[in-house]
Design a protein around this nucleic acid. Structure first.
Length: 570
RNA sequence: GCUGCUGUGGCUCAGCGGUAGAGCACGUCCUUGGUAAGGACGGGGUCAUGGGUUCGAUUCCCAUCAGCAGCUCCA
């Protein structure tokens, strides 16, 4: 099925769903029911929520509507007639009134009629295999001030096999869930009874984090960035000056009041970097200045939005601020884009979406500056031949931005990289540099992050790799499995030989070799070394690869060389 | 924050108006076994918290907190 066919298919499926619900629950009010990226949903207004039993009944009713093979036909009405048809459907009436023109199109199947643009399949019998997946609440028109609707999600396919594959995909995605894997692999934990949305990294998770952070620092230093460190709190006056206490208050933790001063936990790093910049006069000769920091920030997020590592209240941004002249801006953005691509490639991300967000209704700075900055961002994207979409009006109030959204295994998008031009802070902090004629000029401030948040990025990585980290990132790279107690000394000696090169552990438990292999496999250790009489006699090691099996038998020296070459690790 | 669902040993979960169970994990012992779970025994839970109903609550009701699925918002 191509995209259009699929949309028709799912859209018709959603009408069948609505039809079934209307048959079973005549008192419900219809909302909207589109096809979505993967499947379809329909929103209903109803006092009581649907129960799992209701879903089963609805599925049955849907099956009979499909069996009846009702023809689906478009019906054109003028607005007057349409109002009459929809007199008991307040939500539909609202949509009708918003329609331009005098004509309204309905689609009719049996005694079910719905205001709808279409297109649709020509009959209900064409929908073959479907399943209702979940029921959840949503706001009418996505507006939290409006009525809460009951949304039923479903999926359908022409072939049974496709449906089964899709259901398998959902199962698979569950297995990849970083929250489950994080517990299973002992990477991190959370302790919501002592504060939700706060992450505790265990030793194994901490190694991965350290490797990612070290790599990040190394690459930044190689690319003209300098590292800075700044405090976690500051006098609230700083946040008044930056404007955060005004425009960002709801995302900030409450201030800490002490005898003489009031302190604020930082929700962002930018003001601190500005203070460093403003510490002395800067010359155009110094620009561009690129300061990077793995800065831990705290934001008060609403309870309901927290989600594992992907949405937390304390997180570390891989932040950097670039101060440059207007002429340098485009070039700097290109460099950032290159860096983003480099990092995403290193971690094997191919699937991402780039959005350019333009000026919102409320903004600071002049329209001319906005135009210049937006053009610079756009030219940079064009300069690198990157496909992007424009999100009109979705920029931050202080400047336009480029967002790069990575897709996870559930097809959810997560914003990682972001490149933002900021007109607000330079103005509020009176950021200047001396130009070549001794005059004062305001630099362009580019705010950027590549991983976005280390926590989120690691969460995405866990799902991306399904817990099987590549060799260079694996917390335990090799595990030595002695066949029996009498091979322990040889195992210990081998561990000593390998330790200087790789992260290695010895399985010292009194267990059979099968058990040791099984556990190492489940813990996703990339390589196992099996040592018994044979190996000890020959002074060799038997290598087994995770998920692959036996590789061969090698000397310790040869093995180290081989793994180094394979992984590119020094 | 909103709507719904959920909250039982470290993990996954069963159970239920008469004060708790399984598997895995953990500990001790036996076993020394060649490529995905060897065996025996044992320790461990104020059944999220606070109220209420009841002779009696882990079980029913309410509130709070937290988790989950969405929505809204976001790195």
């Amino acid at each position: 099925m191509d995209k259009n066919e699929q949309e028709k298919y799912w859209h018709t499926s959603s009408h069948i769903l609505a039809h079934a619900v209307q048959r079973l629950f005549p008192d419900i009010k219809l909302g909207t029911g589109p096809a979505i990226e993967k499947g379809f949903y329909y929103d209903f207004y109803r006092k009581n929520p649907f129960t799992p039993e209701d879903l089963k009944l609805i599925e049955k009713a849907m099956s009979s509507i499909i069996k009846e093979n009702l023809s689906v036909e478009p019906v054109k009405k003028n607005k007057e007639e349409a109002r009459a048809i929809l007199k008991d459907e307040p939500f539909k009436l609202e949509i009708l009134e918003a329609l331009e023109g005098e004509q309204a199109i309905f689609y009719k199947q049996g005694n079910f009629i719905d205001l709808c643009q279409g297109p649709h399949l020509s009959s209900t019998g064409q929908v073959k295999h479907f399943k209702l997946l979940s029921v959840a609440a949503s706001y009418w028109r996505g507006d939290e001030k409006r009525e809460s609707m009951q949304r039923i999600y479903g999926i359908s396919f022409p072939e049974k096999q496709e449906l089964e594959e899709y259901l398998k995909f959902i199962e698979e995605a569950k297995e990849r869930d970083h929250r489950t894997l994080g517990t299973k692999l002992d990477l991190f934990s959370m302790h919501p009874e002592f504060g939700s949305g706060l992450i505790y990294w265990h030793p194994k998770g901490s190694i991965i984090r350290k490797l990612v952070e070290d790599f990040w620092k190394e690459i930044h230093l190689k690319n003209g960035y300098e590292l800075v460190y700044t405090p976690h709190i500051a006098d609230i006056a700083l946040w008044d000056k930056s404007g955060h206490t005004g425009f960002y208050k709801e995302n900030m933790f409450a201030p800490m009041v002490t005898e003489a001063k009031t302190f604020q936990l930082k929700p962002m790093n930018c003001p601190f970097h500005i203070l460093i910049y403003n510490n002395r006069l800067r010359s155009y000769r110094e620009l561009p200045i690129r300061w990077a920091e793995l800065g831990t920030v705290y934001r008060y997020e609403k309870q309901g939005v927290l989600h594992g590592l992907l949405r937390v209240r304390g997180f570390t941004q891989d932040d950097a601020h670039i101060f440059c002249t207007e002429e340098q801006a485009e070039e700097e953005v290109i460099k950032v884009l290159d860096l983003v691509c480099f990092f995403l490639k290193k971690f094997g991300f191919a699937d991402y979406r780039i959005c350019l967000s333009t000026r919102p209704e409320k903004f600071v700075g002049t329209p001319e500056n906005w135009q210049k900055a937006t053009t610079a961002l756009e030219n940079a994207l064009k300069g690198r031949n990157m496909n992007y979409e424009i999100d009109p009006g979705e920029g931050v109030f202080y400047g336009p931005k480029i967002d790069i959204k990575v897709k996870d295994c559930l097809n959810r998008e997560w914003q990682c990289s972001t490149i933002q031009v900021d007109f607000n802070i330079p103005e509020r902090f009176d950021v200047k540099y001396t130009g070549n004629e001794g005059d004062f000029k305001t630099p362009i401030l580019i705010h950027r992050a590549i991983f976005g948040s280390i926590e989120r990025f690691l969460g995405i990585l866990i799902e991306h790799y399904k817990g099987s980290f590549p060799f260079w990132l694996a917390p335990e790279q090799l595990r030595i499995l002695p066949i029996s107690d009498r091979h322990m000394p040889y195992a210990e000696k081998t561990a000593k030989d390998i330790e200087p090169h790789f992260r290695v552990q010895v399985d010292r438990r009194n267990e059979k070799i099968n058990r040791k292999i099984r556990d190492a496999e489940e813990e996703k250790v990339p390589y196992m070394l099996i040592l018994g009489d044979k190996e000890e006699a020959g002074g060799t090691l038997s290598l087994r690869k995770h998920k692959t099996g036996m590789v061969g038998t090698f000397s310790a020296e040869k093995l180290i060389k081989m793994l180094r070459e394979e992984s590119g690790q020094p």
